[in-house]
Amino acid sequence: MNAHPALAARQHPVVQVSNLVRSFGRGPNILDGLDLTIRAGEFVALLGRSGSGKSTLLRTLAGLDTAPAGTVTVPAERAVVFQEPRLIPWKRVWANVALGLRTPDARERAIAALSEVGLSHRLEAWPLTLSGGEAQRAALARALVREPKLLLLDEPFAALDALTRLKTQGLVASLWRAHRPAVLLVTHDVDEALLLADRVLVLDQGRIGFDLHVNLERPRHHAQPAFATLRSRLLRELGVEEENPEEPVEELRAPTRSRAPAASSRRLEDAVWSASADALARS
């Protein structure tokens, strides 16, 4: 079922952050008066240049980092998938997924979650024998089995090869459709953000500098003209100039201060990835 933005807007907020400030040591404020609201079931992608504080924000929402100033409201039911799978090597795959579940049917729930991510044949495997993609899927199962209201994903696909990455993105999309947690996905990949998210945020100078509602029908497709428009607007926002810029579009910039262009050429490479992503949108 498609989440209509108007419908999403009526949902109650599950994450409310206001005036969040965080610095490390005597350094500058990495997060500097950040405000953020995520509604129930909303899929939010977070972009930003390397070192802009994306992981810091995600760790704060996960309760792994306490900020000195600001208020943070998050649901107790939340789960994290990190860039590395972080499976416990000495526990079988199913036991990793069941870890921390306190119901008597923990094993059954773990097995069900693993079959949902297509790993029912690897239940008894040792984590170190899994491929990178399988390990990341097991980590997804471990997060989803907790039935989180908020799912935090910190570049979970970054270490995967292009094809596995597409498949895993498709998997995340369908799991989100089935379970409807609110999702915060940290990514460097503009296309990934546009394919998956209801809203794309850009973190810049310690605040959400740009908040883009993606009003595209799902499943989404690279060939959609609206997709290309949003994509070039987002790239421009990240400071990446395209070869053939589309005609200027009215910008949905958050009413904050002006920002310096902030993107490396690295992200351009990330952004201009293979058109085979279309396959994902169709799946």
Partner: peptide, 27 residues
């Protein structure tokens, strides 16, 4: 430390983190 942190996000208490992660890891 990343494994211990992951254990924390899975809702393990400190005692459980020691039992499931720290001690087997030190074995």
């Amino acid at each position: 430390a990343k494994l211990i942190e992951a254990g924390g996000t899975l809702g393990l208490s400190r005692r459980e983190q020691v039992f499931h992660i720290v001690l087997p890891g030190a074995l």
